[in-house]
Amino acid sequence: MHRGALWRLFYRASLGDHSYKFLFEPGPPDEAVALDCETTGLDPRRDDIVAVAAVRIRGNRILTSERFEAIVRPEDHQPGAESIKVHRLRQRDIADALPMRKVLPALLHFIGGRPLVGYYIDFDVRMLDKYAMDLIEVKLPNPQIEVSALYYERKYGNAPPGTAFDLRFDSVLRDLGIPPLAAHDALNDAVMAAMAYLALRDMKARGARIPRERAGQGPPPPTGG
């Protein structure tokens, strides 16, 4: 989802804290930030962020040595048992963490005006928007780069009607030959998204496409998990 010029103008004008004006300046050329949030659930209105990680991408490099990582203490309610299972972050782990209003300023300074890269990045940005509105009365104006859209375009962009799409993150990684890391770790997810982004961006520049499986030779049906 793209946030247009008019939208940016509006939020820039209504920015509560002008020390955050840098969010509206374009970031350094050829840089982006891969971002991932781990949350208590999938509803941005009700659920909270429990961990956030971001890495800068400069040119063809993922600067993991300059990463941003934080575990966040939810302020309203405790994480449900379901999300604990997914993220393996227990209440004990979260106890030492900072609340989002303390984490967000550092994260925003880390991101600056750079485009945000992620897998379903819109969800992560909407989660962050909730806190940003409280803090500086603005939604994140950064351009978004959606990994699954780049993947769709390289793989299914010219597909005949009726082709079944498979945009699961696992499938993206497998097609690109990216070794899967322990998933549901915010930093790992951000790094994997960054790797997928660099590979897909380069394929696009070279006009290379991802071959589609022929009917009957598709991946085995997912068996849960």
């Binding site: 063809n60 490099r61 993922i62 993991t64 040595s65 070794p179 660099l198």
Partner: peptide
């Protein structure tokens, strides 16, 4: 803590003879 990750395009020349390297590369894939 100090690692970065680099992406190399097919055909990209990483090092040429006589060149000094700023990094030791360890191939992931």
């Amino acid at each position: 803590a100090a690692l970065d990750i680099g992406y190399l395009r097919p055909g990209e020349a990483v090092l040429t003879p006589g060149q000094k390297a700023e990094h030791l590369h360890v191939i992931i894939k």
